[in-house]
Design a protein around this nucleic acid. Structure first.
Lengths: 149, 149
DNA sequence: GAAACTGTAACTAGTATGGTGGCGGCTGTG
DNA sequence: CACAGCCGCCACCATACTAGTTACAGTTTC
């Protein structure tokens, strides 16, 4: 069932960082607190986001994390892609099927095409929402739901 | 990473059954052979498909499986939905986040909305392809790729 | 009754997950 | 310089789900 909750952690962390001005560094412990989770877990996810150029870290005392580009330019797909390593959501056969069966001979490649298309549809939908978007909606809700889109 | 390969098994089995006329029962061993897998595993998946009215089984000697409705009316989404129990592809947080943080207070429900929309997009794409469609393409390929759509 | 099926339960081994502790290295402050 | 605060990373744990297998009870045909 399901992929992992890393994408949720990633989006949470990104939105958390989007609250603050750039150069206003936030330590992983603060983010972990908001997630009610562990700093190490947060750093694992943030490390992946950094590898994709979404956030940057500053070491040492007073260090922490910040967005590496404007929140408008970071979509949920970026977060998903950074964090959910390659593996497709819908995996084809565990073992390749029998090559001596008409179905088996073609099913795998056909399934890969269909599943890839389905995954692309999912990612395209994720790409429609940016981190800035998430933050805006949170702020709307916080001051009483005038609803933005 | 990923869900399970049950959907792949389900689509394979459905397409396999679509090869034959209705009332031409196929035993799970034959399907398992095409998958190069185990009859029990196949029956587990077929059992789920039967629960959703996609296939039907006849017990006893000479028994087996058949499609319960025309292959045109069975889509990959039907197979997916029957086999991949409820759990969303993109899970939200493992632990609910901190309620004392502005982000934490709203992130979960916002994520659920976004993730549900993304999953729906994926399922809608799966719904565009029927089992009949899969079989047709396999037969096209088998006789030399005149390509059908 | 034997043979050919479905239907289930119980078990294994492998793998990914969230979570935790420990430790080294970097950096700003006093 | 020492220290505190922070990142980066490794090793480890318990849990859960996976594919695959064995075993066996029930049902039907011959």
């Amino acid at each position: 069932m399901s992929v992992s909750s890393r994408t949720a952690v990633a989006v949470h962390a990104l939105t958390f960082l989007a609250q603050w001005e750039a150069d206003d560094l936030q330590p992983s412990t603060d983010i972990a607190e908001s997630l009610e989770s562990n700093p190490v877990l947060v750093r694992r996810v943030l490390g992946l986001l950094r590898d994709k150029g979404l956030v940057s870290a500053v070491e040492g005392s007073g260090g922490g994390w910040q967005l590496a580009k404007p929140a408008e330019q970071i979509t949920l797909r970026d977060a998903y892609a950074a964090v959910e390593k390659g593996a497709p959501v819908l995996p084809a056969h565990a073992h390749p099927p029998s090559q001596s069966c008409v179905i088996g001979r073609h099913m795998q490649s056909l399934l890969e095409v269909e599943f890839a298309a389905a995954q692309r549809a999912m990612e395209d939908r994720l790409a429609e929402t940016s981190v800035a978007h998430m933050l805006r909606r949170i702020r709307d809700r916080e001051r009483g739901e005038p609803v933005s889109r």
